[in-house]
Amino acid sequence: MTRGEFRTLMTGLAFTSPWILGFLIFTLYPVAASIYYSFCDYDVLSRPVWIGTLNYHDMLTDAVFWKSLKNTFYYALVSLPLGLILSLLVAVLLNNSVVGRPAFRTFFFLPSLVPAVALAMLWLWIFNGEFGILNYAMNWAWTKIGVFAAWVSAFFSDAPLHWPKPHFPNWLAEEQWVMPAIIMTSLWGIGGTVVIYLAALQDVPRELYESADIDGASTWTKLRHITVPMISPVIYFNLIMGIIGALQVFSGPFIMFGGSGPNRSALFYAIYIYQNAFEYNQMGYACAMAWVLFLIILALTWLATRATRKHVYYAGE
């Protein structure tokens, strides 16, 4: 290294030093400390006591840990594919040249700007079993269908049609409906993903579509064989971000249920970490859980990368 190169290196380091120091102090140190604490009985206030792998061992027998893991996977497995497909479809639609396209794009993006707390309060009212607009709308639609059905059946028989009066779910109070409700709320935030898809869609070469048109390809064929392969790196990116986001979901359910929901049906992994760390003062256990989550995300990301390797197309290669 010449003197000049050394000087350049030093200048570069000097310019990045605020970040480097910040990273070392506020990120690397806490991360390293959390590894240590995960092997300790640590309640934040007293000195941590080394207990070896007991925290990890306890997780195996902690039924609530498994429940939170199960809930989180259930959520991820349904909401992630649903979100990816729906946002791709919306992006493709918004990519068409229609009148007022910028306005439509804005409408779809707007919801993802609403703060999580405001959103959670909003959903609380939408899902309200008695006054909620969701049940109101379903009830309205069901009644209208009933009127129509009665009108049709009058042509065939004289007996009045018995149109059943269904019980619509009390979304946030009934255990089995809690997760579907949370998944619905997650779809509200697809705007961000849509924008990323839209950017990628702009980059797909027009001539590919033109030649496909000449060959008489249908819309579906074009989507399947041109659009999706051409934007596959972006789908891959959204998949990875989606996995990470879905496994770390916290704020929405936390605000909506203020804890774990009926029979712990809304207890997500991140919420259980929070409860252990800040409500039960089991910081050591929470750190261990956080590291297990990290390993799970790492493994899933690696799996996703492996599984999609053959299907992701990079123009440069």
Partner: peptide, 10 residues
């Protein structure tokens, strides 16, 4: 139970 839940939602 359902009646109570519905009532509770109000």
């Amino acid at each position: 139970l359902r009646n109570m839940q519905t009532f509770g939602a109000t």
